[in-house]
Amino acid sequence: MQCVAVPAIFPGWPGERGDINKKIRITLNGQERILEVVPYRLLLDLLRDEMGMTGTKEGCGTGDCGACTVLLHGKPVNSCLVFSGELDGADIVTIEGLKIGPELHPVQDAFRQDGGAQCGYCTPGMLMMTTALLRENEQPTEEEIRFALSGNLCRCTGYAKIIQAVQRAAEMMREKKITEAKG
């Protein structure tokens, strides 16, 4: 079992108090970890500044933009509004955990092919939300995609290509499933 000592990257934030640190056990991208965390630190900061997983982005910090979306117990949430001290027993998947092995995840591949990313800042959040959507709904309509992504803002693409990419990802995942079923 891996025990990561914290703080690792940015030690000593102003006003830090070690006495209230909390030991938590989490599963992060499929790996079990025991961490000593600062309870009031945001999950977003825990990931970026302590675990070195900078794929998850901060846009607004107030739950409005979705750039910080991660899966918590399989469900998409805004990591900018979650405290580390709540996380004992949590199963967390970030953008770093989407791709397993050398191949891109179909959602990543579809966004790449369709130009669903421009500056890329919103992209990790978009990909996590899309992954969550396609798990619940294999063949979403355009309206369902817009509904699911309404908490993910993008200032570059105008959304058209993102929607196209989600539809392509859905198609790729359905095809993959059929091929796998055929063995």
């Binding site: 108090r17 209230i20 909390k22 600062v38 309870p39 009031y40 945001l42 405290f83 001290g85």
Partner: peptide
């Protein structure tokens, strides 16, 4: 965005 000041979290 501002970061929280220190506080403890209990989980009863």
């Amino acid at each position: 965005m501002k970061r929280p000041e220190p506080f403890e979290i209990f989980q009863p």
